[in-house]
Design a binder for these strands. Structure first.
Length: 483
RNA sequence: GGCCCCGUCGUCUAGCGGCCUAGGACUCUGGCUUCUCAAGCCAGCUACGAGGGUUCGAAUCCCUUCGGGGCUACCA
């Protein structure tokens, strides 16, 4: 019987979770859900100088917001916890000692300076830089001499001669000659574990069956496998590896803070919908195989398979994200749209949040829904509905300063004031009869003037609907004010 | 430098030997629609990095080359 799939997302939160992390998390999640397996969420915080509690909390919050949930990990717990590596130090110490006792690992007394000097020499000689094995077979005398010098040893894993061969689901068979995989450090001189130790130990102990991660970790796979072997794991129990292609920035290097917006928090603030971000990211390095591009989270779990993941890197394209975001916004029900838009309107200081204010926003949402691509555009579109008067943008003001515009506005007031029913139909009928049929004006000229007077801008939601929502009194007084 | 990964329109991709004079999406350009802006609809531009093979036949397989990226820490 096939083992139950157990994937894991194991970030090292040294900052806000970024787009690349999320793409990985999304694939891990989708694969677990697709197979009916489990997603384990683990925090790799062995380097506590760089990982803070704030970042960890933010990572959890971001994942939840995106709709990525986990079966084991922080908050939910699980049978293989704890899920923060900083709380698993005893476990790593145990294995470090075991490796040392078994001779799989050894103490290395070389200083950082010595190592660096030798690496430089290797590089200069066109050799593969890496640990030269100086401390592999130290005699008792040498060791005591080093100890007397006050040197503190790091724990280094012994890489035997030979090669490591494994099948990456995305890249096929990959082989690394150990000549290019030097003995690597497992634990610092102070005994604290490094990623190389912790990641492998945890994947084994947490019974991870599939490791989907960034391709930058491809070359560290032989080291990880070496640890599995030292732990006594049988080859058939090794996890399956799948190294995901990078998400690249505009300059075609791995997406980072330097070449694009990477923080998911930033995208959230800009008004991108979580389902749009996930949909877009899912399409970066993966496709369902047909021409579908609008994919919900549920559909993703149904369609996602690792063998459909691309091996080549994908460039992040903000334009496409915006297009998808616009589609998702248009697909929202009005109530849902309202809930999502409200925080942006409040943050802009347009409303305080009374039920009355919400009702006004809700009334205008249908006519602006297809006009925005991001939620942060909502405030600008709805603000004309608040306040008695309206301040007219300077650029627009110039367009209604001429005498013809004044005439249009004045006559408009005259036909609007007698109206007994104030609906967009009645308003349009009155204005059309006057300006288009009566005065023979071009609609864009005639309605443009009224639009500026009423909304304060030459760009606005549909005019007649806007006037209806604004109410007769305010609409007319604004027109008068502009004359 | 060494090792590894990657290479289809500007971008994301479909394609896994004939269905490809290479399809879709985003972008861009033009048009239609139209009260502005959008949305929508239609049309157009633009790609198999190069060179060798294998084969009746290659975007698809192999080799070389060029190009891009990653790794090369007591970071992850």
């Amino acid at each position: 019987m096939a083992r139950e799939v157990r994937t894991r997302f194991a970030p090292s939160p040294t900052g806000d979770l970024h787009v690349g992390n999320i793409r990985t998390a999304l694939f891990d999640w989708a694969y677990a859900r697709h197979t009916g397996g489990k997603l384990i969420f683990r925090i790799e915080d062995t380097d506590r100088d760089r990982v803070t509690d704030e970042y960890i909390a933010a990572a959890i919050e971001t994942l939840k917001w995106l709709g990525i949930n986990w079966d084991e990990g922080p908050e939910v717990g699980g049978p293989h916890g704890p899920y923060l590596q900083s709380q698993r130090l005893d476990i790593y110490s145990h294995w470090a000692k075991t490796f040392l006792d078994n001779g799989d690992a050894y103490h290395c007394y070389c200083s950082t300076e010595e190592l660096e000097a030798r690496r430089e020499a290797q590089r200069a000689a066109n050799l593969a830089p890496g640990y030269d094995g100086a401390c592999r077979n130290l005699s008792a005398d040498q060791i005591s001499k080093y100890v007397e010098e006050g040197r503190k040893p790091v724990l280094r894993m012994r890489m035997p001669d030979g090669e490591t061969k494994f099948t990456d689901v995305i890249r096929g068979e990959v082989v690394f000659d150990h000549k290019f995989v030097p003995d690597f450090v497992l634990a610092r001189a102070d005994g604290s574990p490094l990623y190389t130790l912790a990641v492998a130990v945890d994947d084994v102990l947490m019974k991870i069956t599939h490791i989907l991660r960034g391709e930058d970790l491809l070359s560290s796979t032989p080291r990880q496998i070496r640890v599995y072997q030292a732990m006594g794991v049988a080859p058939e129990d090794f996890p399956v590896f799948a190294h995901l292609p990078f998400v690249m920035g505009q300059d075609n290097t791995k997406l980072s803070k330097r070449n694009g917006e990477v923080s998911v928090a930033w995208y959230r603030e800009q008004g991108f919908l979580p389902e749009a971000i996930c949909n877009y990211l899912a399409l970066l390095g993966w496709s369902p195989g047909d021409d579908r591009e609008n994919i919900s989270m549920k559909e993703l779990t149904e369609l996602f398979t690792v063998d459909r993941v691309n091996s080549s890197p994908a460039r992040f394209d903000m334009k496409k994200l915006e297009a998808i975001n616009g589609d998702k916004i248009r697909a929202l029900s009005i109530d849902d749209f309202l809930e999502r838009a409200l925080p942006f309107v409040k943050a802009a200081g347009i409303i305080a949040g009374s039920d009355e204010d919400k009702a006004v926003i809700r009334s205008v949402l249908p006519i602006i829904q297809e006009r925005i691509a991001k939620l942060n555009e909502v405030p600008q579109m709805v603000k004309f509905l608040f306040g008695e008067g309206v301040s007219i943008e300077s650029e627009s003001l110039a367009k209604i300063s001429d005498s013809q515009s004044k005439e249009i506005l004045a006559k408009s007031v005259a036909v609007l004031e007698p109206l007994t029913t104030w609906t967009h139909e009645s308003i349009e009928a009155a204005l059309r009869a006057l300006l288009i049929d009566g005065m023979g004006l071009k609609p864009r000229i005639a309605f443009g003037a009224v639009r500026i007077a009423v909304t304060g801008s030459h760009i606005s939601p549909p005019l007649f609907e806007s006037m209806e929502l604004l109410g007769k009194t305010r609409a007319i007084s604004r027109i008068k004010a502009a004359i």
